[in-house]
Amino acid sequence: MVQLLAMDKNENIINKMEELYKQVWNKSIIERLIRHTTYEGFKGYIIISEEEGLLGFAYGYTSLPGQYYHELLFKEVSQKEYETWLKDCFEVVELAVHPLHRNKGYGNKLIHELLKEVDNKTAVLTTQVNNTVARHLYNRMGWIVIKEPFIPSEHEDPYVIMGKVLN
């Protein structure tokens, strides 16, 4: 049986999220994840299976001035776009679904649950420009492109900034 649960911030769950993230993206998330759990408005959800363990997760928090990614996005958008998208915003930071469990609606369920009780007016996220699977998912869920391309750092591939009006 598969369950969708609010993320417990205990070490066991965080370590399982780290393992899954490494399988999906081939890099570590643990330091960043632990730091993000302390941010205002943090919330996360996991999908687990009794038989197969952690199948996926998503998390985010309120995007605020002074936060690293908020400042990166601020530099990339116009003042009007900032007022529209980042002034009262929930940032979807990560979505990861185990490769063997994709195309089963888990990503959709995780994002839907993550945003369900968010009080912010908008939500933003970034994904790689060439990540067509994620982009199709977000498009189906009503997300729109705010800016493309967005280059977070000289060592990263181009990303797209996407937004969704919530209230």
Results as ranks from 00 to 15, higher is better:
1 M>V: 10
3 Q>G: 08
6 A>R: 13
7 M>T: 12
7 M>W: 04
8 D>F: 12
10 N>D: 15
11 E>K: 15
12 N>F: 14
13 I>R: 03
14 I>F: 07
15 N>V: 00
15 N>Y: 09
17 M>E: 02
19 E>V: 12
19 E>T: 13
19 E>K: 05
20 L>I: 05
20 L>F: 00
24 V>M: 08
24 V>H: 02
31 E>I: 14
31 E>Y: 12
32 R>K: 13
33 L>D: 01
34 I>F: 07
34 I>T: 09
35 R>W: 13
35 R>T: 10
36 H>K: 08
38 T>L: 14
39 Y>V: 03
39 Y>A: 07
42 F>G: 02
43 K>G: 11
44 G>W: 00
48 I>P: 05
51 E>H: 09
52 E>Q: 07
53 G>P: 05
54 L>R: 00
55 L>G: 04
56 G>E: 02
56 G>D: 04
56 G>S: 01
60 G>W: 00
61 Y>M: 10
63 S>T: 05
64 L>I: 08
65 P>T: 01
65 P>H: 06
68 Y>R: 00
69 Y>Q: 11
71 E>A: 03
74 F>W: 09
76 E>Y: 00
77 V>I: 10
78 S>N: 09
80 K>G: 02
81 E>T: 01
82 Y>R: 13
82 Y>M: 06
82 Y>L: 15
83 E>K: 07
84 T>R: 14
85 W>V: 03
86 L>P: 03
87 K>L: 14
91 E>M: 06
93 V>I: 05
94 E>F: 07
95 L>C: 05
100 L>R: 09
102 R>A: 00
102 R>E: 00
103 N>K: 01
103 N>G: 01
105 G>I: 02
105 G>S: 01
107 G>L: 04
110 L>S: 06
112 H>N: 15
113 E>N: 15
114 L>M: 13
116 K>I: 12
118 V>C: 10
118 V>T: 11
118 V>R: 06
120 N>R: 05
124 V>P: 07
126 T>W: 12
127 T>A: 09
129 V>R: 10
130 N>D: 15
133 V>E: 12
134 A>R: 06
134 A>N: 00
135 R>W: 02
136 H>K: 02
137 L>F: 06
140 R>S: 11
141 M>R: 07
143 W>T: 02
143 W>Y: 09
145 V>H: 04
148 E>Q: 04
149 P>T: 03
152 P>D: 07
152 P>G: 09
153 S>A: 08
154 E>G: 04
156 E>W: 11
157 D>K: 14
161 I>M: 07
166 L>I: 09
167 N>P: 15
